Simulated assay, not measured.
Amino acid sequence: MVSYRKRGSVWQYEISYKDTSGKYKKLRKSGFPRKSDAISAAAQLQTNHPNLISFQSGKQIFSDYFEHWINLYKKPTVSNITFIKYQNTLQHAKQLFKGIRLSDLSRTVYQQKINKFAETHSIRTVHTFHKQLKSALLDAFDEKIISIDPTRKTVINGTPPRKQRMTLDYKETKLLVKHLDLNMLEDLVIYVAIVTGMRFAEILGLTPADIDTQNNIISITKTWDYKFNSGFKPTKTKSSQRDIVVDSETIKAIHKFVSHHKIPETNPIFVYNSHSIVSAEINKILSSKLNGLGIARIPFHGLRHTHASILLYSGVNLLSVSKRLGHSNVTTTQQTYLHIIKEMEEQDDNKIIILLQAIK
């Protein structure tokens, strides 16, 4: 229902409508010099926005809409870790789109904000940020809260990824191992990563029951949730469940640590009172040790790559390395360590030539 009235020297229109709760609301606008202008403007509004509830929703601050959207659609359906990523996106959106209403979001405005975000973030981070915002805005577009899709044909940029060293060479690995105190929890964690190639969560998931002291075998059947300390979790994939053969000295070092701290058979070896060190802490400790030895830093996960590289350079079969790492297939191992495989092929070519020459 539309009504018109004169306020002083100008005209005003007033549109009555029901909101989602059934309550009557009013939308007013004044400042029209003639009544016919007010009638024309009200008609135009109703033509362009037959659903006035959606039109009014477009006046929401974008970050407020996104916050409501992630709590309504994402919180009940995604994991805690994934929801934390949505909350991080929300915090960035509050700063980047501060004060901007949904109805004010054009393709130009959205692209400008994405470009601003890209100045200090990697392409991968910008893509994730854009993907989450886009999902919410497409819902707003479907519900006719906004009249256009501001994310259409968005160009994704970002800072170049940093080139990070990911492996130690054989001499550096020996030097690091030589300076580890295996009576210390953090040092033993680093040592186990070097000699097994296990992932950080897999190491934290080890219990005394997983250590076969008779056959020198470590069984990997679970991981530990070090992000939320919620307890044991399944391995990354089914193929990640595996047995790893190690030397007797490694088994003795773990057994000594377990005995000294009187760790029960089913308790995690490297977790105290259900709390473990987190990846940031172990990375900091590893970096400090490498720096003290004059070795360029690598991340903790780089110890897994170091283990695999040493085995491959030593001529260990690719399939054996793949199984030891818990990869789901050999292709994953080939793609990850392609540069090493190519080097090994060149060495094999030289061996073949020498062998053929010796036959003649």
Rank of each mutant, 00 (worst) to 15 (best):
T213I: 15
F232P: 02
S239H: 08
D243E: 10
S230D: 10
F232Y: 10
I244C: 09
D225L: 01
K222N: 00
I244S: 04
K238M: 06
A253D: 06
L204D: 09
K233P: 00
A201N: 15
V177R: 06
N273E: 11
I254M: 14
T167D: 04
P264L: 03
V246D: 11
L176G: 10
A193I: 03
V258Q: 05
R199L: 12
Q164F: 03
L206I: 15
K178R: 10
R242A: 03
T223C: 12
S219Y: 07
R199D: 08
N157A: 13
V189M: 13
I269M: 02
N267S: 15
T221W: 06
Y226K: 00
L176S: 04
L175Q: 14
K222L: 04
V258F: 04
S219H: 14
I263A: 01
P160W: 04
N229F: 03
Y272L: 14
R199Q: 11
K171N: 13
V192C: 11
F257N: 10
T167I: 15
R162C: 04
I211K: 02
P208D: 14
A253Q: 07
I190H: 01
A253C: 06
D247F: 11
T266Y: 05
F232K: 06
A253W: 00
T207V: 13
N157R: 15
G197Q: 08
A193Y: 03
Q214E: 13
G205V: 12
V195D: 05
E186S: 07
L185I: 01
A193F: 03
T221K: 14
